[in-house]
Structures are given as C-alpha cells and as structure tokens.
Amino acid sequence: MTETNKREHEHDCLEQVIDGVVELGDNQSKVSVGDIQNKIGQRSFGPFLFVPAIIEISPVGGIPGVPSMLALIVALFAIQMLFGRHHFWMPGFLAHRSVSGQKLEKGLNKIRPVVRWLDKVSNKRLDWATSNSFLRVIAVLCVVLATSVPPLELLPFASTAPFSAICLFGLGITTRDGAAIVLGLIVTVGAFVLAGMGLIG
C-alpha cells in the first residue's frame, strides 16, 4: 500500500475518528466541543456531521440539552459546508461547552461495534450522491433536520430520528458511499414526519 493510499484509507476509517474522541474522554474529566473539533482536525465535511450525530445516538444523547447543543453544532457546520468553507469556524460560547469525559468515553465505546460495522459495509458507490453539487443539497437538509431537534427533545428518543439521517449523510460523505446518503434521504423523510407529529402534538 502506497503512502498516499494509506492516508486515504485512514481518512475513510470512521472507527479511527471515534477512537480519537474516546481517547479524549479517557484522558480528560471534561471534554469540550472545541477539544473534539481539534481532535477531528480539518478532515472533510463528513466527520463534522458524523461525530455529533453518533454522540447523540449513543447514551450521551440522553443527557438533557445535549441533543439541542449537537443540533446547533451540525447546523453551524452544515451552513459553512453550504457556502463551501474548508476551515470550519465555531463561536467561543459553543466551543467551550463540555460533557463528562467518562460519560463520553463509555457512551462511544458502547456504540463502537456499530461504527466498526459501518466501516466494513461502506463502499465507494453511487458517485452522483457524493458529488460537490449534491453536497449542497445535503447541507440544506442537515440544517432543516437540526432545526427539528429542539421540539423533538421533549419526546423520549425522538431526536434520534433526525440524527440518524445526519449520521448516514456524514458516513456517506466520509467513506464516499452514495448508498448511505440515499438511505439518509429515506430516513430524512421519516424524521420530517416525526417532527411534524411532534410539533402538532
């Protein structure tokens, strides 16, 4: 394997991204949003969508207020993605928000087998779904999905629906798997229906 191919393989490995965040939780009593951003680095749009989503889907997402905070992060990155930024900016008040390192480490370790499985089944396919032009469509959808989270947080586990779609978008972008993005589109429809029910209720 050449050095270039090795770097590309590492770039596409979601478990390694999660490992980095778990390491933060293992070494620090408190892990801030800025710490996680620095650990991910300026990889691509995908991990900046995938990591907040997988954190929300993990047991950490059950902490009150965390889903809305993660939704704000997703919306912020998605807007910057929409305008073609390559270096993401985050306001200080958000970068300094933190969660327990122990809870983060335990929560992500519980969901690690899922991330490992996603890595195994992901393949580069349906190139049109990972094209730069379609990324803008995904960015808009992620902003809309993120705005649906705060009202859904009033319903147990309901905010997992929009974050599942965001997770699939992040997975598809990171691994260049258009099938994951198409599946994310299907989940998005379900999330919008659930959000509509939540708002009506």
Rank of each mutant, 00 (worst) to 15 (best):
P59G: 15
R116H: 07
I18M: 09
A195M: 08
P151C: 09
D127W: 05
G198L: 04
G198R: 01
R43W: 05
C167Y: 04
I166F: 06
P67D: 07
G84Q: 05
C13F: 09
D177V: 12
G170I: 00
D177M: 14
G20Q: 01
K39C: 14
L152E: 04
S100F: 02
K39V: 11
W89H: 06
T2R: 11
L70A: 12
S122D: 02
G170H: 00
G61Q: 00
E23W: 14
V144F: 01
G101L: 01
P91N: 09
M90L: 14
D35T: 08
I111H: 04
I55C: 13
H9I: 07
A165W: 03
T2M: 11
L118H: 07
D127Y: 12
S148K: 05
I200W: 11
I166W: 12
F88C: 10
L126S: 00
V189W: 06
F93P: 11
I73L: 15
L155G: 08
F48Q: 04
K103L: 08
S159K: 02
L76M: 12
T147L: 15
S148Q: 12
R116D: 08
L135W: 01
L154G: 12
I36A: 02
G84C: 05
K39T: 15
M90Q: 04
F134E: 06
I73M: 10
E105P: 04
I55A: 05
H96V: 13
V189C: 11
Q80N: 06
I36V: 15
K39A: 12
P67G: 04
S131T: 03
K39W: 03
E153S: 12
M69E: 12
V17M: 08
R116Q: 14
V99K: 00
P156K: 08
A180V: 07
A53M: 11
V74G: 05
E15N: 03
E56N: 15
F50C: 02
V121A: 01
G46D: 02
K120C: 06
D12T: 13
I79Q: 02
S159V: 08
G172E: 04
